[in-house]
Design a binder for these strands. Structure first.
Lengths: 122, 122
DNA sequence: ATTATTGTACTATCTAAATAATACAATAAT
DNA sequence: ATTATTGTATTATTTAGATAGTACAATAAT
């Protein structure tokens, strides 16, 4: 299937974002075993080294841990996952309003623009 | 002052974003003369070549135009500026909801989370 | 015991981006 | 006329990232 990656940011960062999101959104469950580095590299269509880098960075963040030869697993610390989810969501909101502000939209305008956009979809 | 740049994306793309936003938000007015390449490079604390690249790309987008030796100017096509502003805003909204969705928040949840966040600020 | 799979490590190569240092032609300012 | 400023072009160097290829130690599976 080959993940959607662009050339504007380092691949390994995009891989991290994607996997982090999949964990947060519970596509992978706490304690679940991840596919191997080589498998994930195949799935995403990237070099195994690049995937390895992404995974080892996620390990530094504490989101996954590896057991020497049995594989790599999602952390079982559900409290941490919940907290991370909230943090990431808040960060998205903050950045979004920041961007809109820089385009010249105050909070009120942004809010009504959202309403309008959502209505148009429905 | 030195603009806020990170190492996660090419500098010239970040420069483009910044200048594009400043134009859209009317920090620079249509027809107004931009500081010279060298000046802007100093202001942003980047290499003149990098700034040159950003500006020539913005020129390809039609946002600015250069007159051989008198300098570089903001386009006078206000219609285009207005349209670009709307497009960029819509794109921000779309991406934001996309990101939130990938974190596991549906539109409704995202909306109420926004309300909650804005209230907390006030 | 043997085999296959695991994460990990290492070296080499290639490319894009950023920087540095100049240079030049056109023209506005003097 | 001379000077300074403009955008632009060129060459070289450095660095980070991506890829390719290979290797190894630990251990689960057989």
């Amino acid at each position: 299937m080959s993940w959607e990656l662009d050339n504007d940011r380092p691949i390994y960062l995009q891989l991290m974002d994607r996997i982090r999101q999949d964990i947060i959104a519970s596509l992978y469950r706490p304690g679940e075993k991840l596919p191997s580095v080589r498998e994930l590299a195949l799935i995403a269509s990237v070099n195994p080294n690049t995937m390895q880098k992404a995974l080892s960075e996620l390990e530094r963040e504490g989101l996954v841990y590896s057991q020497r030869t049995s594989g790599r697993f999602i952390t079982e610390d559900e409290k941490m996952l919940k907290q991370l989810k909230d943090e990431l969501a808040f960060e998205q909101i903050r950045k979004f309003f920041e961007q809109m502000k820089q385009l010249g939209f105050q909070e009120e305008e942004t809010l009504s623009l959202i309403q309008k956009t959502l209505k148009r979809e429905a």
